[in-house]
Write a protein that binds this DNA or RNA. Structure first.
Lengths: 166, 166
DNA sequence: AAAAACTTTCATTAATTATTGAAAATTCAG
DNA sequence: CTGAATTTTCAATAATTAATGAAAGTTTTT
C-alpha cells in the first residue's frame, strides 16, 4: 500500500472511531494526524492537511489540549504555535480514560446515589431500588479499575492481563 | 425524594449517558424504563411513559432487541407484544461490551493491519509504522480482556478485580 | 374473506451538532 | 505606540442524526 493511501485511511478511520465514542470527527482526525507526524505542526499545516477551516482547527486543537493529549510547542524565531501529540499510546489511553471517567462515571454515580433515596415500598419502588443499587455497585467497581488503570503503567497492565487470562 | 421524581431523573440521565456513548437517547431511555419496570411493557406503555411516537418507539425497541438486552414476551389472551429488559446488570454489561467490541474494536484491528503495510522508509513512514504497530498491540490486548470479560461471570470479574487492586 | 388489532416502514420534518469565515482580540517586533 | 502576524470567538450556515405520523403490512379473530 502506498504511504499516502495508508495515512489517509488511518486518519479517516480514527475519525470514524472517534465519532462512535462521542468525540467529534475532526478532533479525532487532528489527533491522528499529529500522532503520525514525526515533527510538530502549525495550525495552518493542520488546516491544509485536513482541509478544514481555521475556526474548526483552533477549537478542536484546544479540546485536545484540554484533554492533555496534545501540547503546544514553541520554535525559536517562529511566532506561530506548533502542536505535538504524545506518542506513548499507554499515556494517551490513560488520559482519555481519565477524562471520560470524569465526565461520565462520576456524574452517573452522583445520580444513582441521589435517586436511590426514592421513598416508598411498592413492588415498583422495590424493583427500582434493586436496579439502582446493582448499577451503583457495578459502576463503583468499574470506577475502581479505571482509577487503578489511570495511575498505572504499561507494565502493570500487562502483568494483570496475564493474571486474568490464565 | 418522591418516587416519580427519582424515576424520571434516572431515565433522563440514562439517556444522557447513552448519547455520550453513541447510543441514541431514546434507546437508552427505553432501556432505563424497562430496567426498572417490575412487569413487562407494551409499545403503547412505552410511548405514553416517554411521550414518543410509535415509529420512534418501534425502531428503538428493535435496536435494543438486536443488542440482545431486551426481549419480546407474550401474554396469554393478549395480542400485543410486551417487552422486558434483562435485569442482571452483569449480563447487560457483557452484551453491551460484546456489541461495541464487534462494531468498534474489530474494524479498528482490520484497518491497522491494512495500513501497517505502508511502503517506504523515510522518517515519516517509520513514525507512522511505529504508531500503528503500538496501537495494534494495545488494541489486541484490549480485545483480549474484552473477550475474556464477555465469556465470564460476575464472580470471575470480582476475583480479578481483587487481584488487580492488591 | 373481511374486519380488527397490532406492528413496521419510511418520506417528511425537527432537533442537534459541527463547520465556516469574517471580525475581534491578542501578541509581539520595531 | 503602531502595525503586522497570529489566535480566538461567535453568529450564520451546513451537515448530520433523530423523531414523527400516516400509510402499508401482518397477523389473528370472527
Amino acid at each position: 500500500m502506498e504511504f499516502n493511501e495508508a495515512k489517509n485511511k488511518f486518519i479517516q478511520n480514527w475519525g470514524i472511531l472517534g465519532s462512535s465514542w462521542g468525540i467529534n470527527r475532526t478532533m479525532a482526525q487532528i489527533h491522528a494526524l499529529l500522532l503520525i507526524s514525526p515533527n510538530v505542526l502549525s495550525t495552518e499545516d493542520i488546516m491544509d492537511e485536513l482541509k478544514i477551516s481555521r475556526g474548526n482547527a483552533n477549537m478542536n486543537i484546544r479540546a485536545l489540549m484540554d484533554w492533555g493529549i496534545v501540547t503546544k510547542e514553541y520554535k525559536v524565531g517562529e511566532r506561530r504555535d506548533f502542536f505535538n501529540a504524545d506518542k506513548d499510546i499507554w499515556a494517551v489511553a490513560r488520559l482519555i480514560i481519565k477524562e471520560r471517567s470524569k465526565r461520565e462515571i462520576e456524574p452517573v454515580l452522583k445520580v444513582l446515589s441521589e435517586v436511590k433515596k426514592a421513598e416508598g415500598n411498592t413492588e415498583e419502588i422495590e424493583t427500582f431500588k434493586t436496579v439502582v443499587s446493582d448499577l451503583e455497585s457495578f459502576t463503583s467497581s468499574l470506577n475502581g479499575v479505571v482509577e487503578k488503570f489511570v495511575k498505572s503503567d504499561e507494565h502493570w497492565f500487562y502483568k494483570n492481563l496475564l493474571k486474568m487470562v490464565k
